[in-house]
Structures are given as structure tokens and as C-alpha cells.
Computed example of a mutant assay.
Amino acid sequence: MSVTIEITGHAQREAWARKEIPPVEEVRDGLWSIPVSMGQNPLRYILVYALAASDGTLALIDTGWDSDEGWQMLVDGIHATGHDVSDVKKVVITHLHPDHFGMVPRLLDHADPILGMHRNDARHLRFHTDAEVGRQLAQGQAELLRLGVTDNAVDIGLNQFTRLPKGRTMDVELADGDPIGVPGWDLRAVWTPGHTAGHLCFVDDTAGVIFTGDHLLPRISPNVSTNPFQAESPLADYLISLANTEQLPDHEALPSHEYRFRGLATRVGDLLAHHEDRLDEITAAVAADPEITAWDVTRSVTWSRPFAELSVPLSHMALRETHAHMLVLAARGVLTATEPDAQTEPVRWSVTAPA
């Protein structure tokens, strides 16, 4: 008999099924989930979490995608907690992606919070000048060429990278196990690299909750991709992070998207099985076409919608996700990469011949 997770965010789940934005909810005494719109993104919204501190201030976990609509939803959600934006004195970020970090610069115009993030993501905030951004984009373009992309290899997704205002830095660079320091709460950071190199979950054993960010979602598998801001083998990191998460107490999971749930170990098992299936599918694609590029593998495996319907940014995300799987297969000795003589030529992959 299959085991499934227990959905606890029923109003969120019902809103998701209706393709609507869920309501602001008080999940625990002094803890609220605040949905913030992501515009036309298929995920529709991110869940920002607000915690009322015992000293009368407010702390936020993530801030949401930067837009006028999103900002108004965040402000209205904060007001629903009985606070004002100026009461926000601490903000901790699960990871650097723009739907989580994007509203920070706008928030700094209205409040003066202490900002915290894992150092592996925080270090990328130091890229401020156009020249530095250009170097990152050039690196991304070169990587796409080596992966076999032929459509001019413009990595549009990197243009969405959000930065702090000039002269502003992270106040705290968090590490695994660090206390967050919100009065009245028992929050600590749990480093879960994979989705990004510095992804953090936040656990409160007293309240019985774990804020899972994008590390664990109830329905979908988060994108785990190679890119200039990632670790060398992000999927390997993610699989280890999943195994470590399985050892945490079975608290209620408060994810950044979709809806709340219980059953961490079950969800971890589902995701581990999903990635093993994906590794098998990619191995079969390479076996069927030796000396194939990562781009051609990406176009040959299955996706949630036909690959031809994906936008350029989404197709490149799919490619980088495929590449992350291929690196794991290479580390396991299943695949072999043949480096080209010229840097502008793609790497080609084959199934490793048995000894």
C-alpha cells in the first residue's frame, strides 16, 4: 500500500486546485503565512511567513517576488498580523532566487531589518557593477555552448538576479545550526544545499514546524540545476540534503509554494525515487545515442509539458537540470564525458564501457 503525505493546509490546497491565491492564515499563535503573487509564473504565488516576536517586532521568512502587486499583498498581509511594515526587524531568506529575495530592496525603503542568508548565496550579492554582471552572463553563455545549445546561448534567466542596494550587505551570514534569534521563538537554520548552494530551511522544535523553502514541496520536485552560482554538483548535494532532512523530527512542513503538509520522510522518499527514475531515463537516452550532448538528452527525455512548448528560459533550466543529473551519473561511473578540443564545442556523453 502506498504511503502519502498528510495535507494540513486545506484552504491553501483548495485555493491551489481552483487556481486562486489562498488567504492569509495564522498557522500558529503569532505565525502567519502570507501569499505574495508571482504574476504569470505557473507557481502563481510564494508563501512568505511572518513571526510575531515577544518584543513586539515582526520577523519575515522570505519577502516575495518584486512587483507592485506583490508589494501590496505583502503590506496587506503584514497589516493582517496586526503590525506595520516598519515593525519588521528581522528578515531571513531561504535562498537567493528572485521570488524569495526579490522584495528585499523595496522593504529596505520602509523598514530597517537585520538581514540573514547562508553565506554561499550571500556572496553573490557582491556583484553590483555592470561589468561584474556581464562576466557572470558571459560565463553562463559559455556553459550553455559546452552543453550543446545552438540558439545563440543567451542565458536570459541570469538577468533576473536580484541585488541589494549599493552599499548594503547581509548583516548575518548564516551557517547550519545557527539560531535565528527571534524573541519568543526557537528557530534554527538547517543548511540544505541543492536548489541553491546556500538554501536554508528553518526549524522550530518548540512550535513543531519546519519552513522548507523550495527544498521540500508537497507536489513538485524543485529545480536542481548547474549554473554559475551553484556548487560543482548540485544534485549530489541535494540528494545528501534530502537524506539529512529525513532525520529531522516529523514537524509540520511550511513550504514556500503550494500548501502545508506532514510526512517529511514520505516526501523525501518520493523525491529520492523520482530522481533515481530520472537518472535511469537519462542513462537510457545516452545509451541510445552515444556521443550525445546534454542539450540533445534534454530534448529527448520527458517533461511535464512537451519540450517544444517551453520558453527559452525554461528550456535552459531544463537543460541545466539534465546536466546536474548527468554529473551524478558520471560520479557513479555510469556516464563518461568527452571534452572537446575547442572551448566552443560541446561536451559529448556516452555510457561507460564495462571494464
Results as ranks from 00 to 15, higher is better:
Arg28Thr: 10
Glu26Thr: 09
Ala17Phe: 04
Arg18His: 14
Val36Gly: 01
Arg13Asp: 04
Thr4Gln: 14
Glu25Trp: 03
Thr4Gly: 11
Arg13Asn: 08
Ser33His: 02
Glu14Cys: 04
Ile5Phe: 13
Trp32Tyr: 15
Glu26Ser: 11
Trp16Asp: 02
Thr8Arg: 13
Pro35Leu: 03
Val36Cys: 02
Gly9Val: 06
Thr4Arg: 15
Gln12Pro: 01
Ile5Trp: 08
Leu31Thr: 09
Glu6Cys: 15
Glu6Lys: 15
Gly9Pro: 06
Thr8Ala: 13
Pro22His: 06
Val3Gly: 09
Pro35Gly: 05
Gly30Met: 08
Arg13Met: 08
Ile21Thr: 13
Ser2Gly: 09
Glu25Asn: 10
Ala15Gln: 02
Ala11Val: 07
Val36Gln: 00
Pro23Asn: 12
Ile21Gln: 07
Ala15Gly: 07
Val27Tyr: 05
Ile34Ala: 00
Gly9Trp: 04
Ile5Asp: 07
Val3Arg: 14
Arg28Ala: 10
Ile5Arg: 12
Pro22Ala: 09
Glu25Tyr: 05
Glu14Lys: 05
Leu31Ser: 04
Ala15Val: 01
Ala11Gln: 11
Ile34Lys: 00
Thr8Asp: 10
Glu25Arg: 12
Ser33Tyr: 01
Leu31Asn: 04
Val24Thr: 09
Trp32Gln: 03
Lys19Asn: 12
Val27Gly: 03
Trp32Met: 06
Glu26Gly: 07
Glu25Val: 10
Val36Phe: 00
Ile21Met: 14
His10Gln: 08
Gly9Thr: 09
Ile21Cys: 09
Glu6His: 15
His10Glu: 05
Ile7Phe: 08
Trp32Gly: 01
Trp16Glu: 03
Thr4Cys: 10
Gly30Glu: 08
Asp29Lys: 11
Val3Ile: 13
Ser33Ile: 04
Arg13Ser: 08
Asp29His: 14
Ala11His: 09
Trp32Glu: 03
Arg28Glu: 12
Ala17Gly: 04
Thr4Lys: 11
Arg13Leu: 07
Ala17Leu: 13
Ser33Gly: 05
Pro22Asp: 03
Leu31Glu: 06
Gln12Val: 00
Arg13Ile: 01
Val3Pro: 06
Asp29Cys: 12
Val27Met: 10
Ile21Ser: 07
Ala11Ser: 12
Lys19Ile: 02
Glu26Met: 13
Trp16Arg: 03
Pro35Tyr: 02
Pro23Ala: 09
Gly9Asn: 11
Val3Ala: 12
Val27His: 06
Asp29Leu: 11
Thr4Tyr: 13
Pro23Arg: 03
Lys19Leu: 11
Val3Trp: 10
Trp16Val: 02
Ala15Thr: 03
Pro23Phe: 05
Thr8Glu: 08
